[in-house]
């Protein structure tokens, strides 16, 4: 292991961070904007609203992101109508294809996460809002969604972390984000340990920062941090202790 190479490649790969972050946050934003209305449709008791959304989330969560990305990047060009449309300007660009794939994929997961939170909101909260005369839209915006979002924040945080990691697939369609740069560097130097480790360190840094951010957000939104399962652990350790 060459420590100097590890350090210098960390610095080189750091220039891929902006693209990784751009891909992450842009898809995060788009995924969120899509997921909010979709999750309400998915939570609806009306079948004609919920079933199409279920079909979407089922397909996007049931197939690999890599296939989705390749369908968008390589596949759509096979359709003449798309090639000749104005959208082609965007769809032949790997960046926009990644953005589209990551947003649609992330939105599918986020929709199901939000749906769970929405359905778990106590009916009493909604009745109290109806009783003061709020409109259905006001109730969704001001009562249901904020309560649901708080309750699913840990799952949503995991989803965001997954998205950071998912952006590494952008390297398969020639983008030079952290992973793309590291693959390029490895093919030039053939020092995979140092370079992929350096890339791993950068991703760890990003995921740690995000985890910290979400922990702080959770503590802020929910008051004091939740008590840990301390007593159970103690009982368990006694069992292990006697083994």
């Amino acid at each position: 292991m060459d420590i100097t190479l590890l350090l210098t490649s960390t610095v080189t790969l750091a220039s891929g961070i902006p693209l990784t972050l751009l891909l992450t946050f842009a898809s995060l934003l788009a995924g969120f904007v899509l997921a909010v209305p979709l999750s309400f449709m998915r939570a609806s008791s009306r079948k004609w609203l919920s079933l199409p959304v279920l079909a979407y989330t089922y397909v996007f969560r049931g197939t690999p992101l890599l296939v989705q990305l390749f369908i968008i990047y390589y596949g759509l060009g096979q359709v003449g109508a798309i090639r000749s449309s104005v959208l082609w300007v965007l769809l032949r660009d790997p960046f926009w294809c990644c953005l589209l794939a990551f947003s649609l994929n992330g939105a599918a997961y986020t929709t199901e996460i939000f749906r769970g939170g929405i359905q778990a909101v106590a009916t009493g909260m909604i009745e109290a809002a109806q009783a003061v005369g709020m409109s259905p839209l006001q109730i969704k915006r001001r009562i249901i969604f904020p309560i649901a979002f708080r309750s699913v924040l840990p799952s949503y945080a995991n989803e965001v972390i997954s998205l950071v990691k998912a952006t590494s697939l952008a390297s398969t369609v020639t983008l030079l984000e952290i992973t793309g740069l590291s693959r390029k560097l490895v093919s030039e130097t053939f020092a995979p340990y140092e370079i992929f480790l350096a890339a791993g360190v950068l991703y760890l840094g990003l995921t740690f920062l995000l985890t910290g951010f979400f922990n702080a957000l959770e503590a802020r939104l929910n008051g004091a941090p939740r008590a840990k399962a301390h007593t159970r652990r103690v009982a368990l350790q006694q069992v292990t202790h006697e083994l």
């Binding site: 009493g124 009745e127 109290a128 809002a129 109806q130 003061v132 009562i143 904020p146 309560i147």
Partner: peptide, 30 residues
């Protein structure tokens, strides 16, 4: 509904809002 106040057995306060916000939400929105 806005002309009839309702008080529930299980309070049904909105947990993400302070006491004051619970009280002002209706007047502001409705």
């Amino acid at each position: 509904r806005a002309s009839m106040g309702m008080v529930f057995q299980s309070f049904n306060l909105w947990p993400h809002k302070t006491a004051l916000e619970n009280v002002t939400e209706g007047p502001v929105l409705v």
